[in-house]
């Protein structure tokens, strides 16, 4: 049985190659493969920009953070981006400890992430 995580998708008006994904729940070793598959499917479907809304992401561990870095790398390879918004302070601390704050594109709000799209 996996930890509970739901991914909710939303289109961004005026950005056909962008998808907003709301992460709801915990991202950990039990569900990274599922999340990996779903996000990679978006890349394969031509969505080269992903905006991840973490407002309802309660928890992330090192394995979860590993796939976030992987998404960032994959997006860059496709000349796109993987942007994160609304990170809670506990999750941010884990990202910070791993030293990934400079590697991931992190925004306070989703609107800021959208405004930063090329």
């Amino acid at each position: 049985m996996e930890s509970q995580i739901e991914l909710e998708y939303e289109d961004i008006k005026g950005h056909a190659d962008t998808k907003m994904v709301r992460f709801v729940g915990d991202l950990d070793a039990t569900n990274v493969e599922t999340v990996l598959e779903k996000i990679c499917n978006l890349f394969n479907d031509g969505f080269i920009n992903i905006i991840a809304d973490f407002k309802k992401l309660r928890y992330v561990n090192s394995t979860g953070l590993g796939i976030l870095l992987h998404f960032s790398k994959s997006a860059k390879e496709k000349n796109g981006s993987f942007k994160i918004a609304n990170v809670n302070e506990n999750v941010y601390e884990i990202i910070e400890i791993i030293g990934a704050t400079t590697l991931l594109e992190i925004y306070d709000e989703v609107d800021e992430a959208i405004a930063a799209l090329k």
């Binding site: 990274v32 561990n61 090192s62 394995t63 960032s72 860059k76 791993i98 590697l103």
Partner: peptide, 17 residues
């Protein structure tokens, strides 16, 4: 001593964390 934040690496940061 500190976790490795290399972009492409999916695992191997647990103990350092």
């Amino acid at each position: 001593k500190t976790p490795d934040a290399k972009l492409g690496q999916k695992r191997g940061r647990g103990l350092a964390l």
